[in-house]
Amino acid sequence: MTLRDIINKLLGRQESSASTARERLQLVLAHDRSDLSPELLDQMRKEILEVVAKYVEIDLEEGAVSLETEDRMTALVANLPIKRSLSGAIQVKEPVKESSD
């Protein structure tokens, strides 16, 4: 973020178009480079959430799995907020045995 971006933010103006261009490019290139279709990515997101939800209580609404890219390296980044009990402890579940159907 640059001084101009901060001032623009304070004044409620749009950020500079170069910043927008940079962000949009980073996003689109992560997808271009991975060759993953949005449907596949979405399916993968669901499955990852399901697996993690077997062990810890996560907020299914908040969970995000995305592709990020830097230096021609693409990473799959999962951001899965874990629900905490009132005491603040992480709620760990007993792993449930997969039912074979």
Partner: peptide, 18 residues
Amino acid sequence: MMASQEMLSIEDVTDILA
């Protein structure tokens, strides 16, 4: 345009394309 940040900077492009 680069100075007024209405164009991707040289660094932006070299960073993105590595």
